[in-house]
């Protein structure tokens, strides 16, 4: 049982939770994630660690309401408990001084991107960050990103904040004027796919942090498997980060929708119950 010590709404659909987990706070590195479960009948879902405070013994996770479990999480208040939190899982991000890093985050993918940006900056790189979302209220962690980036480019689909356009438009603008040595992309699978198409065209080495379905998160089940370089890899133990040029994003997109029909059904019945209560 892990207590929620702080909660903040970034928007009506995106919530930040600071959770007591002293061991994880101490052991985690950039790129790591945790698995959480809400209630004795809950499912296990992976969430990336955005920040950690070793002294307070807390980790920060950022959740977007998309399904039953994420809504349950977002409904927790300060003082409530998360039934299970386990981690840190996955391999940490490979950090080194490469020169200029172009970091691209979309939606809540910006949360896992934050520690990566921080680590690359601290390793002596120039970091240019592109944050993208549908609209102004979905742009998160801008201030924190500015702390560790040499430049932050904001893109919104509707132009309500920053520049109007997709993440790739923002990237292209940077690529035109800068020599980029490495690109990191974290966000919805479809976004990462298009980011990778762009960087491949410009021959910029790219790392993608994948967010697949998982059950145990320790290599036991294989729910998270993806094809990388023609071979099946497990995101939980071989990843979550891979050479983006080698990732079969189309297969990943299909697998992410494995439970779409039952998820929609579960979501609707959950909403009904929730509205009644």
């Amino acid at each position: 049982m892990n207590r929620v010590v702080e909660k903040e709404y970034f928007s009506h659909a995106v919530v930040m939770l600071v959770v007591e987990a002293p061991r994880i706070a101490k052991s985690r590195q950039a790129g790591h994630f945790v698995i959480v479960r809400i209630g004795q009948k809950g499912e296990r879902i992976p969430l990336t660690i955005a920040e950690a405070d070793i002294e307070k013994g807390t980790i920060t996770i950022i959740v977007q309401k998309v399904g039953v479990t994420s809504i349950k999480l977002c409904n927790l208040e300060e003082g409530d408990y998360i039934t299970d939190v386990v981690g840190p899982l996955g391999k940490p991000t490979h950090i080194e001084k490469v020169g200029t890093v172009l970091a691209c985050g979309g939606g809540v993918g910006v949360a896992p991107l934050l520690p990566i940006v921080e680590a690359f900056k601290k390793a002596g790189n120039k970091v240019i960050t592109v944050l993208a979302a549908r609209s102004r209220e979905l742009i998160i962690l801008e201030e924190q990103m500015r702390n560790f980036s040499d430049e932050v480019v904001i893109m919104t689909d509707d132009g309500s904040y920053g520049k109007k356009g997709l993440v790739t438009h923002g990237m292209e603008e940077v690529i035109k004027r800068e020599q980029i040595d490495l690109s990191v992309t974290v966000g919805p699978a479809i976004m990462m796919k298009y980011c990778t198409l762009l960087t491949r065209k410009h021959e910029i080495p790219t790392v993608a942090s994948l967010n697949t379905l998982m059950v145990d998160g320790t290599g036991m089940c294989g729910a998270c498997r993806v094809t990388v370089g023609g071979k099946t890899k497990f995101v939980c133990v071989d990843g979550p980060e891979f050479d983006a040029f080698e990732v079969d994003f189309d297969e990943m997109l299909l697998r992410l929708d494995s439970y779409k029909p039952s998820e929609t059904e579960a979501y609707e019945s959950f909403q009904k119950k929730y509205q009644k209560a």
Partner: peptide, 11 residues
């Protein structure tokens, strides 16, 4: 083998 509906027995 990675199509939806194909599981490991563990999963």
């Amino acid at each position: 083998e990675n199509y939806i509906g194909i599981y490991s027995s563990n999963e």
